[in-house]
Design a binder for these strands. Structure first.
Lengths: 344, 344
DNA sequence: ACCTGCTATGCAAGCGCTTACATTGATCGG
DNA sequence: CCGATCAATGTAAGCGCTTGCATAGCAGGT
């Protein structure tokens, strides 16, 4: 024996609300989406029914019918450390101000996983996507173009790339820091970096160091390079390795602040004084850079501004078919005590 | 003039694939969802068509028709610091192993925002939800029950609560640490905590300190309490305030490691030696606790294990209508150099 | 040769919404 | 007082899938 009692355990639908308010489903829908297209009396009646039933619209049905979701997706390499947190927060805030929801996924720095996440987010109906760094299989960009999903790239900047971008020049920033390091007399330089294989930020930062060395007449081969994954402990381990080398570095330039902080901790553990025995630099200027002891010399990246700009660009891109848009974010050197003049 | 060319710019649908493979949409659907229910020849034909068209299923349509999403949602108070990152990562990994996607939202420690996020995730069809802490408007639990969406609470543990939980005893953990602090001779104790209003973890930790004091015969009123928001700088600011007090504390027990690290940095800035002039403790044992200098005495929480157990419980709950399930995670004291005997 | 019991596939009815279009009834100028 | 205009609402056709049920074809037992 079936019952049509709307108070059954089935979760209420638009039709239930419509029935209870004695209007059509179209009217209920309009009440919810464009209230001003419905006269006040009716609206009140409908809203009462909504409350009475505890009705909540089914997002999937809505997305299916309306072909947009007011949702944009963001895929970041990791949530485990703070590198992306602040920028993403700002990104989300700006989206929120525009009534858009953010969906995050993290790819663990694996490009195949990232590709999967992209497909997932697209098939979930994301109206747009935020991705980190521009280097990825061109088929992905084609796929996104086919699907009509706009993308914005952040954290990197390739003037040649044909994709909307809000980022900074990793190469120039690191080159500038390296120039400073060299200017302070350091010659035995080491770097600890993330895998440069499919991480454009890492490889450009590395290239920046090399460029500064070449400019100063130091042979490229003098740079000791350790590739590892981002993480405090990984930074420490990398330093231990460097310290077994015949020609110990006087400075370690790290690919990011997380590694750098790990290096400082490990150096102290090994009885080295930072910066007297070993200078250390980072990249990003996240919170721990300031509170590390000694405080970390690093490249300051205005993450919040970047996140906000990225959101704006993406919002403009959705709907419009403007082909492009590029914002270059300026970075700056943040000199603190972890880097000092080289004293022989 | 319309065209039926499937290579039009419209993104391909199941029907396009079916047409190209000369089968019905039902068969295509089966190929994708239960390949073994379709004979190999047909399957190959279909898969070829899928590739040829670059077909990707529409998640919303699928969710609408199938009434499940293989998605679970997690709402955490913040992504800005590392407190939840590790646990969430483990949670996600375990879900991934079971073919389930995680959706995250962050509530910025605001219960109204959290409520909104809950509704959002539910209306998006999340099959289950992970929430942090148990204290919230009972209407929310009712709503979730009505919608038939199972919930697991993590990071907190209320033996009386009727909700599935995977958490630890914040009260007991902090009481134990406070007992240790008192045992080391400290009497002028201060605490810096998150707002205890609708944060059960914070208020239980605070209660733990008070209980230990009472047990040791120290009047509760001797505890200086500063409420602030979680953040490194906020910790520092809170310490500055404490230091203006007539009776300066000999130890600051912080509600979490982030605050504690901020306190240590600020103390050093103020010319205080930690721990000689001021002892500091944290809570969580996240990465920075270990690399802070001095390293931080704190409560170790096995976040990864908690995340994994939470995922398992949630997976079991989805589908089954088992009413409950509770896992208590054990914490331990992690003694490091930031806490030392009180020397008058 | 016929029936039974499979298995592989097709048919078609929704899932819960949005929205183009149709309908209705009021308002108003002439 | 009539038709044009317009605002408010209703009608119903999808959106792109899944899935219960119907069908067809085939192997094997009798």
């Amino acid at each position: 024996m079936q019952t049509d009692d709307p108070r059954s355990d089935r979760t209420p639908t638009l039709a239930d609300v419509a029935r209870l308010a004695s209007v059509s489903t179209a009217t209920v829908s309009r009440c919810l989406n464009s209230p001003d297209r419905v006269i006040e009396d009716t609206r009140n009646k409908v809203m009462k029914a909504v409350r009475e039933l505890g009705y909540a619209p089914n997002f999937n049905a809505r997305a299916l019918a309306a072909k947009r979701t007011n949702t944009i997706g963001a895929i970041i390499p990791t949530m485990e450390n703070a590198i992306f947190a602040r920028g993403l927060q700002a990104f989300q805030e700006e989206l929120g101000r525009n009534g858009i929801t953010m969906l995050v996924a993290s790819s663990s720095y694996q490009s195949d996983l990232e590709e999967e996440q992209i497909r997932t987010l697209v098939s979930r109906g994301a109206d747009g996507l935020l991705l980190i760094g521009y280097r990825r299989d061109p088929r992905i960009y084609e796929f996104l173009k086919r699907q009509g999903v706009p993308v914005v790239i952040a954290w990197g900047y390739d003037p040649k790339a044909q994709v909307p971008t809000v980022g900074f020049d990793n190469f120039a920033a690191m080159k500038s820091l390296a120039g400073k390091v060299i200017g302070m007399g350091h010659r035995r330089i080491a770097t600890i970096t993330a895998s440069t294989h499919d991480n454009d930020r890492a490889s450009e930062r590395l290239a920046g160091i090399l460029a500064a060395m070449v400019e100063a007449g130091i042979p490229e081969t003098d740079l000791s390079i350790v590739e590892t994954t981002y993480g405090i402990d990984e930074g420490g381990a990398a330093l231990e390795h460097l310290m077994t080398l015949p020609d110990r570095p006087s400075v370690v330039m790290c690919g990011n602040d997380v590694l750098a902080v790990g290096v400082i901790a490990k150096a102290q553990e090994l009885g080295l004084n930072v910066p007297a025995d070993l200078s250390v630099t980072g990249f990003d200027d996240i919170e721990i850079a300031k509170i590390s002891s000694p405080p970390l010399t690093t490249v300051h990246v205005p993450h919040r501004r970047m996140g906000k700009e990225a959101a704006r660009l993406l919002i403009n891109l959705v709907g419009s078919d403007r082909p492009n848009g590029k914002v270059l974010i300026e970075t700056s050197l943040q000199m603190r005590e972890s880097l000092t003049e080289y004293a022989d």
